Computed example of a mutant assay.
Amino acid sequence: MERINRIKVVLAEKERTNKWLASQLGINPSTVSKWCTNSSQPDIAILVKISKLLEVDLDELLNK
């Protein structure tokens, strides 16, 4: 499967966990896990929130 997002990579670079991101977004950690494995994708509004939480540009979360 083609990688669609880089959430897992950016979390590791920022030394953050899936559990941390889930708690910040108020969602189930299994949802973040699915995003990190690219088995499902967050909608654009959630990606914007993630980019702000991780202090990265939205472009950095998406494969180019």
Rank of each mutant, 00 (worst) to 15 (best):
M1F: 13
E2C: 07
E2T: 15
E2N: 14
R3H: 11
R3L: 12
R3F: 04
R3S: 12
I4V: 14
N5K: 03
N5A: 07
N5I: 13
R6Y: 06
I7A: 06
I7N: 08
K8C: 01
V9N: 04
V10L: 12
V10I: 15
L11Q: 00
L11K: 00
L11D: 00
E13L: 08
K14C: 02
K14D: 01
R16C: 05
T17H: 03
T17L: 00
T17G: 08
T17E: 07
T17N: 03
T17M: 06
N18C: 08
N18K: 13
K19L: 12
K19T: 13
W20Q: 06
W20Y: 10
L21R: 07
L21F: 01
A22I: 06
A22G: 07
L25D: 05
G26M: 08
I27M: 09
P29D: 00
P29Y: 01
P29C: 03
T31Y: 07
V32M: 05
V32W: 02
S33D: 11
S33Q: 14
W35Y: 15
C36L: 04
T37G: 06
S40K: 13
S40G: 07
S40Q: 10
D43I: 12
D43P: 11
A45I: 09
I46V: 15
V48M: 13
V48W: 10
V48C: 09
V48T: 11
I50F: 02
I50L: 06
K52S: 11
L53K: 09
E55R: 13
V56L: 04
V56D: 07
D57N: 15
L58D: 09
D59Q: 12
L61P: 01
L61Y: 08
L61A: 09
L61N: 04
L62T: 05
L62Y: 08
N63F: 13
N63L: 15
K64I: 13
K64N: 12
K64F: 12
